[in-house]
Simulated scan of single mutants.
Amino acid sequence: MAAAGFSRIALGVEYKGSRYRGWQRQASGVLTVQETLENALSKVADAPVSLLCAGRTDAGVHACGQVVHFDTQAVRSMKAWVMGANINLPHDVSVSWAREMPAHFHARFKAIARRYRYVIYNDQIRPAHLGEEITWNHRPLNVAHMAEAAAHLVGTHDFSAFRAGQCQAKSPVKQVHHLRVSQHGKMIVLDIRANAFLHHMVRNIAGVLMTIGAGEREPQWAREVLESRIRRTGGVTAHPFGLYLVQVEYRDEFELPQRYIGPHFLTGFDLPE
């Protein structure tokens, strides 16, 4: 709950994670998204600002639908929070909206679903553009086999086999609402929505699906990995550059702004909302 005399402000945030060591501020002083955004907002508030986010992204991972909140005694218009933050932010972090929230809102604990997209550029030649915003795979990938494999992972399961060793989640059981695989020219997009995610869960799923798409394993292998509950069964963790946090969902009572589902370079594609 926000303390007496404080307002609770929620922000929509997007960022290119390539040069950051993830979302979370670190004691070592390395560059993080949290510290960068807190520094910008502190200038607007003329006082220190401390942020809490909906989902802590890893080093190199991007976001176009991150939600954060902070408590402040500063009185500013919502436009001032957005424009003031953006004036003080570097080119690869942007605030898209601001909204004053009830005191019981919490960016992380009130979220009811999160959604990621993992973007693969599938071509023999490495692309000169978007190099840090997509994952390049030179092997021809069978999208139909990837989609068949993805179906095994939809539903409520123990995702221990897709969980990083340093994951701090209390339970490996998560509910995947959908896991779609679609192709758009040379782009293959994995779109996954769940109630919550384990550390490296999406990247480990992407690694399994690309292995299957390359013909190294049959689609049934995705279920075998899942049922093993052993991380090493699933092979390598996919690269972070293709991963985007695209949406965080909350109950209607909070009336948060709804934007298109990113990333930006996919907005012209026929992707389901």
Score class of each variant (00 low, 15 high):
residue 255 E to W: 08
residue 268 G to R: 10
residue 49 V to W: 00
residue 72 T to F: 00
residue 224 E to W: 05
residue 51 L to D: 02
residue 62 H to G: 03
residue 198 L to T: 02
residue 111 A to D: 07
residue 147 A to S: 14
residue 258 Q to S: 10
residue 270 D to L: 09
residue 186 K to Y: 09
residue 145 H to R: 15
residue 185 G to Q: 09
residue 141 L to R: 07
residue 255 E to Y: 09
residue 208 V to S: 03
residue 111 A to F: 13
residue 160 S to P: 06
residue 101 M to W: 05
residue 10 A to N: 07
residue 95 V to G: 04
residue 201 M to S: 01
residue 92 D to L: 05
residue 252 D to L: 10
residue 89 L to P: 00
residue 228 S to P: 07
residue 46 D to T: 08
residue 270 D to Y: 06
residue 179 L to Q: 04
residue 231 R to S: 07
residue 104 H to C: 11
residue 67 V to L: 03
residue 116 Y to L: 08
residue 145 H to K: 15
residue 205 I to C: 00
residue 175 Q to E: 14
residue 52 L to V: 15
residue 231 R to F: 08
residue 160 S to Y: 10
residue 127 P to C: 14
residue 233 T to A: 14
residue 43 K to W: 04
residue 102 P to M: 12
residue 175 Q to L: 13
residue 110 K to W: 07
residue 131 G to E: 15
residue 43 K to Q: 14
residue 71 D to K: 02
residue 170 K to V: 13
residue 52 L to H: 14
residue 34 Q to F: 04
residue 255 E to D: 15
residue 260 Y to G: 12
residue 254 F to T: 04
residue 60 G to V: 03
residue 32 T to F: 10
residue 197 F to K: 02
residue 239 H to N: 13
residue 67 V to C: 03
residue 36 T to R: 12
residue 254 F to L: 11
residue 203 R to K: 06
residue 227 E to F: 05
residue 137 N to T: 12
residue 261 I to R: 09
residue 244 Y to S: 11
residue 140 P to T: 11
residue 121 Y to K: 10
residue 18 S to P: 01
residue 134 I to Y: 11
residue 64 C to K: 00
residue 225 V to Y: 01
residue 76 R to M: 10
residue 164 A to E: 09
residue 199 H to P: 03
residue 171 S to K: 13
residue 121 Y to F: 15
residue 32 T to S: 12
residue 183 Q to G: 11
residue 266 L to C: 08
residue 252 D to I: 05
residue 230 I to N: 11
residue 233 T to D: 09
residue 136 W to E: 08
residue 272 P to K: 06
residue 177 H to Q: 12
residue 199 H to C: 05
residue 39 N to I: 05
residue 142 N to S: 13
residue 237 T to D: 09
residue 209 L to Q: 04
residue 26 Q to N: 05
residue 118 Y to S: 12
residue 41 L to E: 00
residue 153 L to Q: 11
residue 256 L to R: 01
residue 151 A to T: 13
residue 2 A to E: 06
residue 162 F to Y: 15
residue 198 L to H: 07
residue 38 E to Q: 12
residue 173 V to L: 12
residue 21 R to F: 12
residue 85 A to C: 07
residue 57 T to F: 02
residue 232 R to L: 11
residue 192 I to T: 00
residue 160 S to N: 09
residue 58 D to P: 01
residue 231 R to A: 09
residue 151 A to V: 11
residue 216 E to I: 03
residue 249 E to Y: 08
residue 58 D to Y: 02
residue 115 R to E: 15
residue 201 M to L: 09
residue 49 V to A: 03
residue 56 R to P: 06
residue 167 C to N: 13
residue 158 D to I: 10
residue 168 Q to T: 13
residue 234 G to F: 04
residue 164 A to M: 10
residue 75 V to M: 03
residue 171 S to G: 08
residue 214 A to V: 02
residue 63 A to P: 00
residue 204 N to Q: 09
residue 40 A to T: 06
residue 12 G to V: 06
residue 81 W to Y: 07
residue 129 H to Y: 14
residue 52 L to D: 06
residue 70 F to N: 01
residue 153 L to I: 13
residue 78 M to S: 07
residue 105 F to M: 05
residue 93 V to P: 01
residue 240 P to M: 07
residue 174 K to A: 14
residue 111 A to R: 05
